[in-house]
Amino acid sequence: MQVNQFHSLFYAFTFYFFGLVAIASAIAFVTRKSPVAAAVWLVLVMFSLAALYVMLDAQFIGAIQVLVYTGAIMVVFLFVIMLLNLGNPSELADARGKWGYLAALLIGLVMLAEVMALTRSNTIDRMIPPDLAAKAAAAAAAPLAGGVIGPIAAPLFNEYLLAFELTSVLLLAAIVGAVVLSKRRTNAR
């Protein structure tokens, strides 16, 4: 009993720690003047999200988040910023006048209200049908077969095979598009 209490306390502490790091980094990201500093804060957000994925029992997604998002996508962002020499702090103020601030404030308040409505626990409990809750408890208790990749790979190649194949076509289109768009136009004369 002692161990379980310590375990859940430790888990909650780590969860809140990474959550607060994510929120603080996101706010820092949105308010930086220099795009390079903003990119580094976004990397920190994604890294803490990867930690949260691991805590939510999605270790493969956590590894993929670090590999794809922080290791590839953000590197491409940094490359573009550095190659176009946009890394210096932007000399222009960023908000589009006081109406922009007001709109952002209103949207923030609306979303905060939504979050507060969500976190009232009886709301969540009423949204989950009891048979689903029982199935979730059973799934949490059963060990994963085939390591961490099996439960994701099986639906990917069985039920969602068409979506998987279409995604590969999408990636091909994106690669070709990116190469064509960023080629220098040499005027053939």
Binding site: V43, V66, L67, G71, V75, M82
Partner: peptide, 25 residues
Amino acid sequence: NLPIGFLFTLSISSLGVYGLTIAGW
């Protein structure tokens, strides 16, 4: 002893790119 084994190594070593890029810039 992580269940994600060498995926962890691959993903963390892809973070090594940031040191070089930011050092250069």
